[in-house]
Amino acid sequence: MSDSPKPDSGTTHFGFEQVPVGEKRARVAGVFDSVASKYDLMNDLMSLGVHRLWKRFVIDLAGVRSGEKVLDVAGGTGDLSREFAKSVGPRGMVVLSDINAAMLGEGRRRLADRGVVNLPIVQANAECLPFAEGSFDCITIGFGLRNVTDKDKALRSMCRALKPGGRLLVLEFSKPTSEGLSKIYDQYSFKLLPLMGRLVANDEASYRYLAESIRMHPDQATLKSMMDAAGFGRTQVYNLTGGVVAVHRGFRLE
C-alpha cells in the first residue's frame, strides 16, 4: 500500500477530509502557524511528557558520532537538532529543516535560548529536499511525515540525500498493538485532545486535525513497506508505548 495522493482524483486526505492535493500543504501550514507558539507545551500536555522519552530513544538509536552530518526534517522546535548538535561536535553539522516558517522561527528562538546558534536552518519541503545526493549520514523526521502530502516522494527524497550506509529514522504516531489500548487511545484522541487544544491553545480544530491525521497515517507494516519501496534496506520497526508511537529505521545500502 502506498500513501501517495490519488493520481486520478487529484485529492489527498487532510485529517478525515479529502482535499485537493494543492490545498493540503496550505491547510497543514495553517495548522502549524496556529500551534507553533504553544507546540512544545501542548506536546508535554498531550503525551504527559512521554514525547521526551520517545525522542531520547530516537537520539540514542541514531547513534550520531562526532563529525557526522545530520538533517532534521520537519524539525519544528528543534528538540532533536539540539541533541544532535552536541553529538556531532564542531567537526560535524546539523541542519534543521521544516516546511513551516512559523515552526522554524520558534525553533530558531528556542535553540538560541539554549546557546545553539551556529546551526543552519532551512525552510524546505521534505518531498524535494534541496540537498545534493549523498549529503547526510543521518536523517530524522519526528512527528512530521504524516503531514507530508506525498509520503513516498518524501521517503525517496530523503533516501537520495543520504550517503550510502546512512540511516533514516522516522518517529511517528502509529497503530496501538492491543485492542484495549486502541479503544482508550481513540477516546483520548477524539475527546480529550481537542478539549485540551481548546482550553490551552484556544484552537480545537487544529488539535482535532492532529488526531485525525494520526488515524490516516499508515500503520507500522505499511510504512515499513513504503520505506523498502523507496530504497531503504534493513528496515526495522520499534514500537513504543504499545505502538502508539513507532520508530522506523532504514538504511540506504547502496
Partner: peptide, 17 residues
C-alpha cells in the same frame, strides 16, 4: 523483540566506540 535489540545495539555501540 526489536526494542530489546535496540537497547543492546545502543549499549554495545557506546561501549565499542
Amino acid at each position: 523483540p526489536p526494542v530489546l535489540c535496540a537497547a543492546a545495539e545502543i549499549a554495545l555501540n557506546r561501549y565499542l566506540r
